[in-house]
Simulated assay, not measured.
Amino acid sequence: MADLKSQTIYRALRERILSNDIEPGARLVLREIATQYESSDIPAREALRMLERDGLVETEPYRGARVTTLTAREVEETYFIRSHLESIATGLAAERLSEAALGELEVLMERMQEAVDAQDGPRFSDLNREFHETIVAACGNEMLRDLTMDIWSRHSGFQRVFRLVPKRLATSQAEHEGIMSALRARDAERASKLALWHKRSVGDTVGQLVDGA
């Protein structure tokens, strides 16, 4: 029961953080969270640990937990690494992607377009992650996959961009179309270049969001 409750609290707080309902830098008080979600301290504490693992919350000794504040330097460094890792992974995937995985990507493209049409940032954000994870999983290099997914997991806060900058949805979807075209053609060089440009483009938008905060 505690595990189920901690997951419920985790998902609720995660959505509130990503939608900026709880703003960067806000303090998260354990007892207040437990009271709000009608739980004991144990599942509330576990939920905070999961959020910290996602990079959405940071805990300081004797000061408790706060929502992570993104810095311009962190955005720049993270997207520099991500753009190159995902560029390599996407190029490899173009050569190794199975027909089944390609079919999964086609379905995800349709669902992302539906989210764009509905201006559903949270839905697009989740599908966007699944889209890129499917590509990276198909690269055939376990170390590259693990490194890329580790960075994704530790910097979930960047997903706020699809909630806070609605026009980014259509831009990202157009960039996805280019990547998909290269994957369908098994064009590794073009897929790699387009993935690099895509991540740099997203990084620029996130950077502007941080600068304007």
Rank of each mutant, 00 (worst) to 15 (best):
D3Q: 15
K5E: 15
S6D: 13
A12Y: 03
A12I: 03
E15L: 03
I17S: 10
L18Y: 03
L18D: 11
N20R: 10
D21G: 08
A26K: 09
A26H: 11
R27Y: 04
R27N: 06
V29K: 12
L30Y: 01
E32Y: 06
I33Y: 01
A34T: 06
T35H: 12
Q36E: 15
Y37W: 11
S39N: 04
S40D: 14
D41Y: 13
P43H: 02
P43E: 02
E46P: 05
A47Y: 00
R49K: 15
M50K: 14
M50S: 13
L51C: 10
L51V: 06
E52T: 10
E52I: 05
R53N: 14
D54H: 05
D54L: 02
D54P: 02
G55C: 03
V57P: 00
E58I: 08
E58W: 10
T59N: 11
P61E: 12
R66M: 04
V67S: 06
V67F: 01
T69Y: 05
T69P: 04
L70R: 08
V75E: 00
V75Q: 00
V75C: 03
T78A: 05
T78K: 08
F80L: 10
I81D: 07
I81S: 12
R82Q: 12
R82W: 09
E86N: 05
E86F: 07
L92W: 03
L92G: 00
A93W: 02
A94G: 01
A94T: 02
E95S: 15
E99L: 13
A101E: 15
L102W: 05
L102Y: 08
L102P: 01
E106C: 05
E106N: 09
V107F: 09
M109G: 10
M112N: 02
Q113H: 14
V116S: 01
V116C: 01
A118L: 12
D126F: 02
E130G: 03
E130Q: 13
H132P: 05
H132T: 10
E133I: 06
A138V: 05
A138M: 07
C139R: 00
C139H: 00
G140T: 04
E142W: 09
L144I: 08
L144F: 08
D146L: 15
I151F: 07
R154G: 12
H155C: 04
F158C: 04
V161S: 01
R163L: 14
R163A: 13
V165L: 12
V165T: 12
L169A: 04
A170P: 06
A170Y: 07
S172F: 06
A174I: 08
E175K: 05
M180A: 13
R184N: 05
R184H: 13
R186G: 00
K193A: 06
L194S: 01
A195F: 07
W197K: 13
G203E: 00
G203C: 04
G203Q: 02
D204H: 10
Q208F: 13
L209N: 03
L209I: 08
L209V: 07
A213F: 11
